[in-house]
Computed example of a mutant assay.
Amino acid sequence: MRSLTEEEIISHIPELSNVTLRKITKGYSFDLKYVTEWNGKNVLLRLYDLDLSERVQEKVEKMEAFKKLGVRCQDVYAFGEVPEENFCYTIFSFLEGEDGEAALANLTTEEQCAAGYEAGLDLNHMHELRIEASMKEHMAFIQEKFEKAVERYSRLDQQIPYGRKIIDYVRNNIRLIGESRLVFAHHDFHAGNLIISQKKYAGVIDFNRCGVNTAYSEFDKLELFSSRLSIAFSKGVIQGYFNNRVPELFWKIRSVHMAQLLIYHMNWVTDYFPKDLPQAKDAIQYVWEMYEGFHRTIPKWYEERQA
């Protein structure tokens, strides 16, 4: 997709006319995002490379299915392709409010917990969607993916001081991941993608990374990022998901997920956002300390009171 002016973009999208586009720059996605108007409403316009069209259509179908399950997410208004300019696009409803990263600091501890609990309920509803997938095949994929990540990690100029211990922990316990269940996962579920309006949870956005994965993988970004913003909110998500009955197995599986995520995160930041390496190292150190070098399965943040 070549660089297009806003006028050119509008001219290629039949649903839009006589509108202005306000570009959204926050976030790490590579597609283009704009807030604009459609039928008198604020909407979100996203542009993707045309070769992602099939994946985008799957995302649209799943979002529509999630809405039927009661998940508070965006309505899908339009999907289209513009082959001559090598892009496809979606138009979603715009969830009014602030993302959790901005909003949580202005909520009381009780409000943070309540918002998290409602988000956990939505996540649980998302996982009710029926899918057909093989856990055996998925575990083979997970193991191959991790070994490729280790190989990439071994070539990084900057590495985690205790990286070898993390890798050994994953290899010794990765089989536990297969004790979860396969779902169609959001795959980027954290405060930055959860909207707060009038001090309450309003819905989940950004399904750009969605796909089949294990249910408990959904909490990866929550731990890596959100638990440092708000312990109460993060606890609320977990308790809402499990209706206040969190199984012990969840924590055993979670510790393996978090260990492998540290390797993935270091690779990803190095390859795509090297300027953010200091923040990535801080996040990795935080997880290492919360799990006491993976000598514990329940992270310390979950057992702490909100500061």
Results as ranks from 00 to 15, higher is better:
Thr20Pro: 15
Ala102Gln: 08
Met135Lys: 09
Tyr291Phe: 14
Thr36Pro: 06
Gln260Ile: 10
Asn213Gly: 03
Phe207Glu: 00
Val35Met: 08
Leu194Glu: 01
Leu32Ile: 06
Ile205Thr: 09
Tyr264Pro: 12
Lys62Cys: 04
Thr214Ser: 13
Tyr28Gln: 08
Glu303Pro: 06
Asp122Ile: 02
Trp251Glu: 13
Thr25Phe: 14
His12Ile: 13
Thr5Ser: 06
Ser230Pro: 15
Lys26Thr: 13
Ser134Met: 12
Glu15His: 01
Lys281Ser: 08
His295Trp: 09
Lys67Phe: 11
Leu32Glu: 14
Glu58Pro: 04
Leu249Ala: 02
Cys210Ala: 14
Tyr302Gln: 01
Ala215Phe: 00
Gly203Ile: 02
Trp251Thr: 15
Thr214Asp: 03
Ile10Gly: 03
His190Leu: 07
Lys275Asn: 15
Asp99Asn: 04
Gly70Asn: 01
Glu248Cys: 10
Asn267Lys: 09
Val43Gly: 00
Trp38Pro: 02
Ala191Ser: 14
His257Lys: 06
Gly80Val: 01
Phe66Gln: 01
Glu118Val: 07
Cys113Tyr: 07
Ile263Arg: 04
Gly120Thr: 01
Ile205Val: 01
Ala133Leu: 10
Asn267Leu: 13
Asp51Thr: 07
Leu123Gly: 00
Glu96Asp: 10
Ser11Thr: 14
Asp271Asn: 15
Ile174Met: 00
Ser234Phe: 03
Lys33Met: 10
Lys165His: 11
Trp38Ile: 00
Gln57Pro: 14
Ile196Ser: 07
Pro247Gln: 07
Glu248Gln: 10
Glu110Asn: 05
Gly27Asp: 02
Asn42Ala: 11
Ala185Ser: 02
Leu104Lys: 00
Leu32Gly: 11
Arg296Trp: 12
Ala119Phe: 12
Glu96Phe: 04
His138Met: 04
Arg296His: 12
Tyr201His: 00
Pro299Lys: 00
Leu21Cys: 12
Tyr201Val: 05
Val71Glu: 04
Ser154Leu: 08
Ala114Asn: 05
Glu98His: 06
His127Thr: 02
Leu182Trp: 00
Tyr28Glu: 11
Glu84Ser: 07
Glu64Ala: 14
Tyr291Ala: 07
Thr297Cys: 11
Cys88Met: 06
Ser234Lys: 13
Leu104Ile: 00
His187Val: 03
Val212Ser: 01
Asn244Lys: 08
Met63Cys: 04
Gly27Arg: 12
Val269Leu: 14
Phe207Pro: 01
Thr20Cys: 10
Ile195Phe: 00
Leu229Trp: 00
